[in-house]
Simulated scan of single mutants.
Amino acid sequence: MAINVGEKLPQATFKEKTADGPVEITTDELFKGKKVVLFAVPGAFTPTCSLNHLPGYLENRDALLERGVDEIAVVSVNDWFVMGAWAEKTGGFGKIHFLSDWDAAFTKSIGLEMDMSGAGLGIRSKRYSMLVEDGVVTSLNIEESPGQATISGAAAMLEKL
């Protein structure tokens, strides 16, 4: 069952590429005492993720921050090497967090996993966005189709803020 608005995010640890190499970042470190936009993609470098979803957040980064958002993060069930390469290739490195949920532990713990084995991708995350305030989900927007990024896109998040 998927996490609901009003619920606290479970404890989890992500990996993120930094200038000094990979670091682990916990949900407490990322969300405690902050307003954070978190969005998830089924896979780095995939068409909708790279051509629509991520670019919207990069283009609207400043507008989101101006509306009181402290951090923006994207999470995917990919390893930190892939997420780091995606961050660099898209110009997003250092602008938003590119979080690796390498074993889908976080994604499964919030009930937003999907099995894409039929497409050769294995367990992945559903496409969604959420606003998290001090670790509590205050808005949750889950796409019906992984090939769309409308209700979970940056423009929709800006409207909610």
Rank of each mutant, 00 (worst) to 15 (best):
residue 128 Y to L: 08
residue 103 D to M: 02
residue 157 M to D: 07
residue 105 A to T: 02
residue 68 G to P: 05
residue 49 C to V: 05
residue 77 V to S: 00
residue 94 G to A: 05
residue 105 A to V: 06
residue 43 G to C: 15
residue 22 P to N: 15
residue 99 L to C: 05
residue 94 G to H: 02
residue 67 R to S: 07
residue 74 V to E: 14
residue 148 Q to T: 12
residue 79 D to V: 08
residue 41 V to M: 10
residue 48 T to E: 14
residue 81 F to R: 15
residue 7 E to C: 08
residue 83 M to A: 04
residue 120 G to V: 07
residue 4 N to W: 07
residue 82 V to W: 12
residue 117 S to K: 03
residue 48 T to K: 15
residue 26 T to D: 08
residue 41 V to A: 15
residue 29 E to V: 07
residue 64 L to V: 11
residue 130 M to R: 07
residue 72 I to E: 02
residue 114 M to P: 14
residue 152 S to E: 13
residue 109 S to G: 12
residue 82 V to N: 13
residue 13 T to N: 12
residue 84 G to N: 09
residue 104 A to L: 02
residue 122 G to L: 04
residue 4 N to A: 09
residue 142 I to D: 08
residue 145 S to K: 03
residue 15 K to D: 04
residue 138 T to N: 15
residue 32 K to G: 00
residue 136 V to H: 02
residue 159 E to G: 06
residue 116 M to L: 12
residue 145 S to I: 01
residue 15 K to Q: 05
residue 85 A to L: 12
residue 77 V to G: 05
residue 29 E to A: 00
residue 113 E to R: 01
residue 8 K to S: 03
residue 53 H to W: 10
residue 55 P to Y: 07
residue 43 G to K: 14
residue 138 T to S: 13
residue 88 E to C: 11
residue 148 Q to G: 03
residue 91 G to M: 14
residue 105 A to K: 06
residue 36 V to A: 13
residue 121 L to H: 00
residue 74 V to Y: 04
residue 133 E to H: 02
residue 133 E to F: 00
residue 146 P to C: 07
residue 146 P to Y: 01
residue 88 E to W: 12
residue 159 E to C: 05
residue 51 L to P: 10
residue 80 W to N: 06
residue 124 R to W: 04
residue 68 G to A: 14
residue 87 A to I: 07
residue 84 G to H: 03
residue 17 K to T: 14
residue 111 G to S: 15
residue 143 E to P: 04
residue 26 T to P: 02
residue 57 Y to S: 05
residue 38 L to G: 07
residue 95 K to D: 09
residue 148 Q to P: 06
residue 136 V to S: 03
residue 80 W to M: 06
residue 64 L to E: 10
residue 144 E to K: 13
residue 15 K to V: 01
residue 3 I to R: 08
residue 120 G to F: 08
residue 76 S to T: 15
residue 82 V to T: 11
residue 16 E to P: 08
residue 147 G to H: 01
residue 49 C to N: 13
residue 5 V to Q: 05
residue 113 E to P: 02
residue 13 T to G: 07
residue 33 G to K: 05
residue 75 V to Q: 15
residue 99 L to W: 00
residue 110 I to C: 10
residue 52 N to M: 08
residue 90 T to L: 00
residue 79 D to K: 09
residue 43 G to N: 08
residue 41 V to Q: 06
residue 67 R to E: 01
residue 42 P to M: 13
residue 127 R to Q: 04
residue 28 D to E: 06
residue 25 I to S: 01
residue 111 G to T: 13
residue 20 D to H: 12
residue 110 I to P: 03
residue 119 A to D: 15
residue 68 G to M: 10
residue 76 S to P: 03
residue 80 W to Y: 11
residue 147 G to Y: 00
residue 55 P to R: 14
residue 77 V to H: 05
residue 55 P to T: 13
residue 122 G to Q: 07
residue 159 E to N: 06
residue 104 A to E: 01
residue 132 V to E: 00
residue 78 N to K: 11
residue 62 D to Y: 09
residue 65 L to Q: 08
residue 30 L to N: 00
residue 86 W to M: 09
residue 159 E to T: 09
residue 2 A to M: 04
residue 85 A to C: 14
residue 48 T to F: 14
residue 121 L to N: 12
